[in-house]
Design a binder for these strands. Structure first.
Length: 339
DNA sequence: AAAGACGACAACCGCCATCAG
DNA sequence: TCTGATGGCGGTTGTCGTCTT
């Protein structure tokens, strides 16, 4: 504690690197290799500390670095890995060739985190952000007298990309936390709604179409949601668009004492408003949804299918116990294709 | 045109683990 | 076993360019 920075101690240069410094460092490393970083600045003729040289090389000068925008695949992978690994940027970066931990960390902090927040997802836990109490008090009961403050919807029925599959197949250590969190839940007969959320989100495999959804949010969808909710005191609508979805309802209370009925959902979801309980249960294609469908179809016709909004159906979690798979491949298929 | 806000990215700081002497 | 040097990592701050008012 209290150790001075090496640069301050030795009165070395700090701040941005000049092209001349870059050239010296680059030439030195390419000629002699890395070796001991503490000796690099002296040998390369730099007024920098070894630590600074190391960082400059790793984050900027290394020839194998991939510069430029993150692709959609990379973005998806970062989100998936972040859910498993948290802020272990170095480990995340190890799965993205040519990207540095610093680069990924910056991308996360400046872009992805904000996207998730816009979608109502806590970027730390990857769980939906809880709605403030005052916003939920006037909401109608959602199903069977549930006091659940929200249902959840999603827009993506895409599964993890084949890249993710390949990566995870090669990395059982990444699969394990995903799988254990999933099957811990499935095996549990006393899971609460919040438990389910935790596990469901921990098992999340794909954030595919995040950018598309975010763009929709940017397109006043998010403000529409909040204003609709606040103006009419409605609840939130679980909005299916295809195969795998989850919503949940408790037979009598939100506290989780009763058996939960869960729908299986795609892990990607966002809050959406409804105008009334009636609308929630009967009319699954309300006007704002149609508007949104049109909006989405207009901007993302190639990747989204909005023709299949289904009425809410429920599946008892306790009746849907999945046998433990014998292989990772089987586990993968269950996790990514059946959830 | 100027100033402030904002976002993206580079770099630094401090802590921790490891290792050699 | 202890201690200091070193590298690695994550959090944070600084800088600069662009956008908005």
């Amino acid at each position: 504690m209290g150790r001075h920075s090496c640069c301050a101690k030795q009165k070395l240069r700090k701040g941005l690197w000049s092209p001349e410094e870059d050239e010296k460092l680059f030439n030195h490393i390419t000629r002699f290799g890395v070796g001991c970083w503490s000796s690099v600045p002296k040998l390369a003729g730099l007024q920098r500390c070894g630590k600074s040289c190391r960082l400059r090389w790793i984050n900027y000068l290394r020839p194998d670095l991939k510069r430029g925008m993150f692709s959609q695949q990379e973005e998806d992978l970062i989100l998936t890995l972040h859910q498993v690994l948290g802020n272990r940027w170095a480990q995340i970066a190890a799965q993205l060739p040519g990207r540095t931990d610093n680069e990924i960390k910056n991308f996360w902090n400046s872009s992805l985190k904000k996207k998730l927040l816009k979608l109502g997802i806590d970027p730390t836990t990857h769980k939906p952000l809880m709605i403030k109490q005052e916003e939920t008090t006037s909401m109608p009961l959602i199903s069977g007298g549930s006091t659940s403050p929200f249902l959840i919807t999603h827009h993506s029925n895409q599964i993890a990309s084949s890249d993710h599959h390949q990566m995870l197949m090669k990395k059982p250590e990444l699969m394990e936390p995903l799988m254990s969190s999933y099957f811990e839940l499935v095996d549990s007969t006393s899971a609460t709604v919040s438990d389910y959320h935790v596990h469901q989100n921990q098992s999340m495999s794909s954030y595919a179409n995040l950018s598309a959804i975010t763009e929709v949010s940017d397109n006043n969808s998010a403000s529409k949601i909040s204003s609709s909710n606040s103006s009419n005191g409605s609840g939130y609508h679980h909005n299916n668009n295809n195969t795998s979805n989850v919503g949940f309802s408790s037979s009598s209370s939100w506290e989780g004492e009763n058996k939960l009925e869960l729908e299986i959902m795609d892990p990607f979801f966002q809050f959406q408003p409804i105008k009334s309980e009636e609308e929630l249960m009967i009319n699954t294609s309300s006007s704002w949804q149609i508007q949104e469908q049109e909006q989405l179809l207009h901007t993302h016709t190639s990747s989204m299918d909005f023709n299949s909004y289904h009425p809410l159906t429920t599946t008892s979690l306790s009746q849907d116990l999945t046998p433990l798979p014998a292989t990772y491949d089987h586990m993968y298929s269950i996790l990514f294709h059946q959830i």
